[in-house]
Design a protein around this nucleic acid. Structure first.
Length: 114
DNA sequence: TGTTTGACCACGG
DNA sequence: GCCGTGGCCAAAC
């Protein structure tokens, strides 16, 4: 397989997202200084269930489940979020601003290892 | 090798 | 609050 890339960084941040919280592509892109939020989407596109990356916790800046169509089923993303206590209405996270999670806010020992 | 697309974001109207 | 435009970097064709 390929060597570790910014993909792994995106995966790592996504895993650090607490349950019941959501983050945005821009937040990750800015935190990783990728310079392009689209790369985060590309990275998640490469993401696989085997990596255990909760991509359903990553939404666009509007709090909309933009990537729901990339999941096994279009409703799976919403189901997962609701299962974690995140209310989703009209494909958008309710009180998204309040549930928004910052990478720099959840930095832990595991991330420092990176 | 150049063009097009992509799970986007910021800004202006 | 929504719509249109420009910019960003990387991978696929």
């Amino acid at each position: 397989m390929e060597q570790p890339t910014y993909y792994d960084l995106v995966y790592a941040v996504a895993r650090q997202v607490p349950k019941g919280r959501v983050t945005t592509y821009g937040a990750i892109a800015d935190f990783l200084a990728l310079g392009a939020s689209r790369m985060v989407g590309w990275a998640l596109n490469n993401c696989v269930p085997g990596d255990g990356v909760p991509a359903h916790r990553v939404v666009n800046r509007k709090g909309e489940l933009s990537g729901r169509h990339h999941f096994a089923t279009p409703t799976l993303m919403q189901e997962l979020l609701e299962a974690e206590g995140v209310q989703v209405e009209n494909d958008r996270v309710v009180d998204f601003k309040n549930l928004f999670w910052r990478p720099s806010e959840g930095l832990g020992d595991e991330w420092e290892a990176f």
